[in-house]
Design a protein around this nucleic acid. Structure first.
Length: 665
DNA sequence: GTGGTGTAG
DNA sequence: GGTTCTACACCAC
């Protein structure tokens, strides 16, 4: 279920769309004409565990996270165990309870997306709600079946009818829901036969009602709600808190107004609600209390952020924090690599323990990840770990002073602002390549298009449109569509000029200016040149502008420690023989050199091996020939390069290489 | 873009 | 309001 605010916005949009239609108005069928399925997998984590280990099927099974049993199978439920019980209580009630650890969500996440993927085979309008629930708007599918003369027209509902209401096959709305129930049955059958998972479905005319009705017959059943019974369903909720979309805080405020029953909320004067909650929320929740919900089923697409977290009794030393953060980070990097996109924002969230407050609420700090770093990250290389660790520790120090005693009870590391990344070798079905065409807009902020990162569902659809530089206001960058602004902004000025002068830049060059974005001004330099954390901060060598070729971000990432020819025997980071601006970042992971035998010693084999093979070949060729004759190059840039003024350091002499790392078109 | 808040499973 | 590990949206700034 979407948050109330989003749905308010939807409502507003809907309302506007009822005005005389224009080319842009989005006409949505009246809610009674829609057919929405809510699919809720039965005790999802437990089912996944039983599929992984069929021996558990007939045993009472609980899934444990820390000291909590987050879910259990129906065998356990029959023995008195409930989800969210403490482990101790569950064991008391059911000594034979089998417990499996559910802290690693990998398998659940995978199955969750497999379910969503399968649903998308039926219909594109699938919205995820957590790992185990999906909304599917099957209106089109139902209409198609109703129009199809070949299709046998069912007169009976498949599954249960809420309130035992008698269906009227001559009623058009009933017909839709009858057909919808058969579609839902087909969907559930497919989920079972192909994935081995069972679940409950609710079929109704909107998301709210479909969700409410899906739980009325459990497990592994489905229920249709006919419109005449919606009042009864909504009234069956004995408290406003039971209405999806009204959470704890809103409930508190409603109770302060003396409103705890659904009926009280339905009949409350809107002015009173507006005064307490604001007009938008007031309107929204009163609609919900009446069973009305016009919000659209919005396809979720791939996740917009990836995070890993861990909670614990106490973490109070820097070294402990580092260990925990690094564990989380490595997990996250693996996931990012599988995902196939690059992350452009890094966030650290903590929860502090204070004696007075017991649990301090979460707080977080985030920072941008420069494009070039992001590219390396998504390659799956562990080489970025030290760099990111340093950033995480900096973020931590923005929240707490590590020199005085501290007590953390939770750490969360999050990658967000995920963008398509052509260099990915991922074949993941959820990878961005699955969703996007090869065409991609310049990122929204650079275009001034105002595409908030938080609303990338909309961004996703925008990405399917051809690039339209015309939307960029004057004064913004008009770069070739295959150029990553993040990377571009970090280049030396002379290289920027060279690129912009190349015939690739079809726009008006006079308009071109680099955006003084965070990534441009502080981004990569901050990432690479600040010393170690807090009390141990060491003066950095060569802080500031890179001095030579190897100080470019990419070269720095590629360069391995000079002394680590035998990585396994060299766990620490020895001194670099070259000027080093990168603090810890040059301390790369031990790599497997594999067949790559003729790399220059300064190159990290592990990182090298993650590069696209095309680029590997190119680099090898260059190193071998010691000259600039790569097979694949950004020709026009190189041509321009020949005419550019004077010698410039580093990347400028390899503009083609660097350009390979710019975002794909 | 950032950080807090609220909601959800 | 508390107990896990997420994920998303909104909004003020």
């Amino acid at each position: 279920m979407e948050s109330p605010r989003e749905e308010e916005e939807d409502e507003e949009t809907e309302w506007r769309s009822r005005e005389p239609p224009t080319a842009f108005s989005r006409r949505v069928a009246p809610s009674c004409q829609r057919v929405i399925v809510h699919l809720d997998m039965d005790c999802f984590y437990a089912q996944v565990e039983m599929i992984r280990n069929p021996e558990l099927k007939d045993k009472p099974l609980g899934v444990q996270q820390k000291y909590l049993m987050v879910t259990c199978n129906y065998v356990a439920r029959e023995l008195g165990v409930n989800k969210c019980m403490s482990i101790r209580e569950a064991k008391e009630k059911c000594p034979q309870l089998v417990l499996v650890s559910g802290e690693d969500l990998t398998h659940y996440r995978e199955m969750s997306y497999r379910v969503t993927d399968l649903l998308e085979e039926f219909c594109p309008l699938v919205e995820r709600l957590g790992f185990d629930e999906n909304f599917i708007d099957i209106t089109e599918l139902v209409e198609k079946r109703l129009r199809d003369p070949q299709c046998h027209r069912a007169t009976e509902v498949s599954g249960n009818v809420y309130n035992d209401q008698v269906v009227d096959p001559s009623d058009r709305t009933h017909q839709r829901l009858i057909v919808g129930s058969h579609v839902a049955a087909d969907i559930r059958a497919a989920v079972y036969t192909r994935l081995g998972m069972t679940g409950c479905a609710g079929i109704a005319s909107n998301k709210l009602l479909s969700k409410l009705v899906s739980g009325t017959f459990k497990p592994n059943q489905q229920t249709v709600l006919l419109p005449e019974s919606s009042g009864r369903l909504i009234s069956s909720l004995n408290h406003v808190h039971k209405i999806p979309g009204i959470g704890y805080k809103t409930t508190q405020r409603l109770e302060a107004l003396g409103l705890s029953s659904v009926n009280a909320l339905q009949t409350c004067a809107i002015g009173i609600l507006e005064k307490e909650l604001g007009a938008a929320v007031a309107h929204r929740i009163q609609m919900l209390s009446r069973g009305e919900d016009d919000s659209a089923v919005t396809p979720s697409g791939p996740p917009q952020s990836l995070s890993e977290e861990d909670s614990f009794k106490k973490c109070s030393t820097v070294s402990d924090v580092r260990t925990r953060l690094e564990d989380l980070l490595r997990l996250l990097l693996n996931r990012l690599s599988s995902d196939g996109r690059s992350a452009h924002t890094l966030r650290l969230t903590i929860r502090q323990f204070t004696p007075t407050n017991k649990y301090f609420s979460r707080e977080s700090r985030q920072c941008p990840i420069p494009g070039s770093v992001a590219q390396i990250m998504s390659s799956g290389s562990g080489a970025v770990v030290p760099v990111l660790m340093e950033q995480l520790m900096k973020l931590l120090e923005k929240m707490i002073d590590v020199r005085v005693p501290f007590h953390l009870t939770l750490l969360n590391v999050c990658f967000s602002n995920l963008k398509a990344c052509k260099t990915s070798t991922s074949s993941s079905r959820r990878s961005i390549g699955f969703y996007l065409t090869q065409k991609k807009l310049l990122s929204g902020d650079e275009c001034g298009a105002g595409q908030a990162m938080g609303s990338s569902r909309k961004t996703n659809s925008s990405l399917l449109e051809p690039p339209s530089p015309s939307v960029c206001p004057v004064g913004t960058v008009l770069l070739p569509e295959n150029i990553d602004m993040d990377v571009f902004s970090q280049l030396p000025e002379d290289i920027k000029k060279e690129i912009l002068q190349s015939p690739h830049t079809t726009g008006n060059n006079k308009n071109i200016q680099t955006k003084p974005s965070a990534s441009a001004t502080g981004g990569i330099q901050n990432f690479f040149t600040r010393g170690k954390m807090g009390p141990q901060v060491s003066p950095t060598r060569g802080e500031g502008r890179p001095q030579d070729t190897d100080q470019s971000p990419l070269k720095k990432y590629l360069r391995k420690d000079q002394a680590s020819a035998s990585p396994a025997s060299q766990p620490s980071c020895p001194q670099d023989t070259e000027p080093n601006t990168g603090s810890e970042m040059d301390c790369t992971e031990p790599g497997d050199s594999g067949p790559v035998s003729s790399l220059p010693r300064s190159i990290d084999v592990n990182v090298f091996s993650q590069l696209p093979s095309e680029l590997q070949k190119e680099l090898m060729s260059e190193w071998k020939n010691q000259k600039l004759t790569p097979k694949i190059q950004t020709k026009k840039v190189q041509e321009k390069g020949k005419t550019s003024k004077g010698q410039r350091p580093g990347p400028a002499s390899h503009p083609n290489n660097l350009l390979k790392y710019f975002k794909p078109s």
